[in-house]
Write a protein that binds this DNA or RNA. Sequence first.
DNA 1: CCTACCGATCGGTAGG
DNA 2: CCTACCGATCGGTAGG
Lengths: 199, 199
Amino acid sequence: MPRRSPAQVAESRAAIVCAAVDQGSRWGLEGVTIGWLADELRMSKSGVVGHFGSKERLQLAVLDTAIAKFVRDVWEPAATHPAGRERLLALVDAWLDSHRRELFPGGCFLTTASVEFDNRPGAVRDAVAAAMARWLTTLEREAQRAIDAGELPPHPDATDVAFELNALAMAANNAFQLHGDTTAFDRARRAMRRTLNER
Amino acid sequence: MPRRSPAQVAESRAAIVCAAVDQGSRWGLEGVTIGWLADELRMSKSGVVGHFGSKERLQLAVLDTAIAKFVRDVWEPAATHPAGRERLLALVDAWLDSHRRELFPGGCFLTTASVEFDNRPGAVRDAVAAAMARWLTTLEREAQRAIDAGELPPHPDATDVAFELNALAMAANNAFQLHGDTTAFDRARRAMRRTLNER
DNA sequence: CCTACCGATCGGTAGG
DNA sequence: CCTACCGATCGGTAGG
């Protein structure tokens, strides 16, 4: 007879991951420590680590949850707009707005993780690289639809468009976090709309 | 009568900073640990820290040295070109090439440090923010000269141009480090030249 | 989920 | 520059 129901266990696990997502956006995925989470949630370290087995598996769970949060908050609302250029225009506004609102308190989770892990080996790095690749592919697919529909010129190509939008969003996030510079969002938006060929 | 001459002391200090710049580009400025440096250079920890007094002052010295290395390798050659648009065109090629050659073995030092510290308090963060601000101002001044000379249109303004060039360079560096994607340099170069209004 | 513990490593210091 | 050491914290485990 278990002391805690499966629902209570799931709730406890979710609370750990939620705190870890916030912490990871501030201090990086390596800065999510088991001891800090235990103090924060008034648990023992073994209580925290027991849900995951190891720090690495905790980090992978945190990454998954952060991406799901971003998809729900940014991608899904934009995806209600018609595919192609119109969806991309809605997306870049929602995207920049998520950085301005600090959807993650330490700024864009995937930006932080991808720079933190871009030169390290291991399963976490592989998962971060895969997540970033999926996001760029999502952008690229939408850009390709816009090109196919004649809404964008064929050059720069869809991969170029995805690369540029991602670069500008990452840089705006960094400028805001580092300098508190909110004008960076306007600069990024102007440049993104130029990439999306607004006349 | 000192056991070591001032020149020997300076040489020892320089060797520490040099190893720390490489390490910092790979593992971040927080990942530069005194114990690792001591092992790497076959010194005691107290021998390492004695040159700086604290880890924070070591980090500040490492940041200064990394920036000087970038200025010498990228900015100074570009600065031999005529001011304005021509200099910017030479600069972006040298800049992307420094990322491709891995001037820093773990990729662009300032990109890593500015994302790592963009949400932390302290003297290192302030120094990183100041360094990034100086670099953006350097780019902006050059763009303003190009605008004043009629080599670039007045909109997007010089600050926009600086922001976009920096965003594209950071993103190309990240794509290369994370995915080994060398085409990112070509995408960044195309976008930069579009920003610099090449017809 | 807990307490109690492990070895490793962190930044840093005392004393020479 | 060294040895020898400090308290704190790291990830993780044993046993319950």
